[in-house]
């Protein structure tokens, strides 16, 4: 990154560095889905680095069906008032007015999320137009880079939210890491064709090839239910984890939340992960992804 001594005379908000830098501060941490102020406090007590405010966790969205939308502003404000850590909230894909509302409420990050019902089947929101930074889901490198080109300041694997099954998150993270590793081996001539194949801007493809990583923070999301799941995602290269239904759909949310925080920090220490995994009570039930009809796969949403 370069310094900008001339442009920084006056304080500037909403710069790419400030947006991406916010995500850098979340690294090594756990971001937890919460549906009310009480859950938000449990998450903060457990050591969450941020909470995601939403009306229903993905497991319930799955169960209830229907159109899933941005949460009630009152509920988001109650959560903002209840905790001192950052608060994120979800907008529908392409629903830039929901995103405008979330920015006006003062949320710290907007998740343009496939867990909600998409509002636009062609376009995602123009995220450069906002001061509030965005995180977006991706199943592969091309998708991640298209989101970054639109202004996303943080990327997460999509996984398959609300299933309690980590298999899709593993697939997406491996896919992204493998595609980055492949780019590392390409010479300059090959990067143009790679950009075409990835359907991503050449400049971003070249940047990834040089850095050996995305130019923004990469988290894992979708299906993490246990401390070992969180540690697995970290060992596979995720810089932190989102946990959705996995905590508050389990038997003892406070204990499980604290355990996942420990395992995320000490992801490479099996003894600590073992200790964190003891007597957590019931995990969320979980759904086998291979029995999930294509139409109910959230990861297919977004393009």
């Amino acid at each position: 990154m370069s310094t900008t001594p001339t442009s920084a005379e006056q304080p500037q908000v909403g710069t790419a560095r400030v947006k991406r830098g916010m995500a850098e501060q979340l690294k090594g941490g756990v971001i937890m889905d919460v549906v009310n102020a009480e859950q938000a406090k449990i998450a903060e007590d457990a050591g969450a680095v941020a909470v995601m405010a939403l009306e229903r966790v993905p497991a319930d969205i799955r169960k209830d069906g229907g159109v899933a939308r941005m949460s009630d502003p009152n509920m988001i404000e109650e959560i903002i008032a209840a905790v001192s850590i950052p608060v994120m909230a979800k907008s529908r894909i392409g629903h830039f007015v929901e995103a405008q509302v979330l920015q006006s409420l003062g949320v710290d990050y907007i998740d343009e999320s496939e867990v909600l019902t998409p509002a636009d089947e062609v376009n995602h929101s123009d995220k450069w137009a906002f001061t509030t930074p965005f995180v977006c889901g991706a199943t592969n490198l091309g998708e991640a880079l298209r989101r970054i080109a639109e202004g996303a300041a943080m990327i997460r694997s999509k996984g398959e939210a609300g299933t309690g099954n980590v298999v899709e998150a593993v697939r997406h993270l491996r896919q992204i890491k493998n595609e980055i590793a492949k780019l590392r081996g390409f010479d300059n001539n090959e990067l143009y064709a790679a950009a075409k194949e990835l359907r991503a801007p050449y400049e971003l493809v070249r940047e990834v090839a040089e850095l050996g990583k995305l130019p923004v923070v990469l988290f894992s999301a979708g299906g993490v239910a246990t401390p070992a799941d969180a540690a697995l995602m970290r060992q596979l290269g995720a810089e932190g984890v989102f946990v959705g239904s996995g905590i508050f759909k389990s038997g003892d949310p406070a204990k499980r939340a604290a355990a996942i925080v420990k395992a995320t920090t000490f992801y490479d220490d099996p003894k600590i992960i073992a200790d964190a995994s003891r007597n957590l009570g019931e995990a969320m039930v979980g759904i086998n992804c291979d029995t999930l009809p294509e139409t109910e796969r959230y990861a297919n949403r977004g393009w």
């Binding site: 005379e9 006056q10 304080p11 908000v13 400030v18 830098g21 003062g106 710290d108």
Partner: peptide
């Protein structure tokens, strides 16, 4: 909050 985050 984050919306007030800045560089200078």
């Amino acid at each position: 909050r984050q919306n007030e985050s800045f560089e200078t």
